[in-house]
């Protein structure tokens, strides 16, 4: 291969019968000059007859962009996003309730140990009332999530229950993204910090993230938890794909998961030597 001085790269092959093949390539432009090709969409639009002037093109583009963005927003809102909002609201409510409860109990303690004024009593009662209504609200949210999860993600609900299922969707960033995740990613959803620490510093990888809250994982002895989390996450991966593509409820997924879980429990009645270390 030789570099052609006249702006072309010539490649020639000589065959044994005396004929030869020559290939010409246009000289490859260095990448940094490619950006020199300025484009003015306004000019193009005028030349192509889309608009009388650049000014007109811009005002047409403005209207077009507004309409397009509006339609895209409408399309972007899906059922799973409503579920995500609800479950995130429930999380916020939970922490609020816990904080308020702590405060309430400390206040009650003072009330019991000291003679307290009538005004203070009323204040405390009011706080209790607020706490009660917040708790009611949380329970109502749970019902709402349950209803919606059965409709939108029946398979995930079957595997993980409505609230945990909704939380998993929320961490994954939506049903579509969850449906594209490998089960190994689902297994450690919610353990981002531990996972990146593992990748960067070589600490042991997390066995489970939010899946720790799954009854199969949580109730098991510690040496089985990683294996069980793997079984649950692989079933969840299948469930998410079924739900995203509208496959309807399929009982095979849970049956297979139950079998896997039984097998793991039977095969690992004790921690292995490696695990004991």
């Amino acid at each position: 291969m030789t570099l052609g001085g006249g702006g072309a790269i010539k490649e020639s092959t000589l065959y044994s019968d005396g004929t030869f093949l020559q290939k010409f390539y246009p000289e490859r432009q260095p990448a940094r000059d490619e950006r020199d090709r300025s484009v003015s969409l306004g000019e193009l639009a005028v030349r192509a007859g889309f608009a009388e002037s650049e000014h007109e093109y811009r005002s047409k583009l403005h209207m077009f962009a507004l309409e397009l963005a509006e339609q895209q927003i409408k399309k972007a809102i899906t059922r799973d996003q409503i579920i995500m909002q609800a479950v995130d609201a429930q999380d916020t409510l939970n922490s609020t309730i816990n904080l308020l409860k702590e405060r309430f109990e400390e206040w009650s303690f003072i009330k019991r140990s000291d003679c307290i004024e009538r005004d203070d009593m009323e204040m405390l009662e009011e706080l209790r009332g607020q706490l009660d209504s917040l708790t009611k609200e949380r329970n109502r949210l749970e019902e709402y999530i349950t209803e919606n999860m059965h409709g939108t993600a029946p398979n995930i609900t079957m595997i993980a229950g409505p609230v945990l299922g909704a939380r998993i969707i929320s961490i994954a960033g939506g049903l579509e993204r969850l449906s594209r995740m490998p089960s190994s990613t689902i297994q450690v959803l919610g353990a981002g910090k531990a996972l990146f620490k593992h990748l960067q510093k070589g600490t042991p990888p997390p066995k489970h993230g939010i899946l720790y809250q799954h009854h199969v994982v949580q109730g098991a002895p510690w040496w089985q938890q990683g294996k069980l989390a793997r079984a649950v996450s692989s079933s969840l991966a299948v469930a998410a794909r079924l739900d995203y593509h509208g496959g309807g409820l399929n009982n095979d997924v849970i049956k297979k998961m139950d079998k896997k879980v039984e097998r793991i429990k039977a095969a690992h009645t004790k921690p292995s030597k490696k695990q004991k270390k």
């Binding site: 300025s38 484009v39 003015s40 969409l41 306004g42 811009r58 005002s59 583009l61 403005h62 962009a65 507004l66 397009l68 963005a69 509006e70 895209q72 927003i73 972007a76």
Partner: peptide
């Protein structure tokens, strides 16, 4: 952003991922 752009003709709102510039090639110029 759309609401802001309604009264400002020089703002072209685009719903897109900046990490994938080719997705708004048809709307944005040099």
């Amino acid at each position: 952003l759309i609401e802001t752009a309604r009264s400002r003709k020089n703002v072209i709102p685009i719903l897109a991922d900046a990490a994938r510039p080719s997705t708004y090639l048809g709307m944005v110029e040099t």
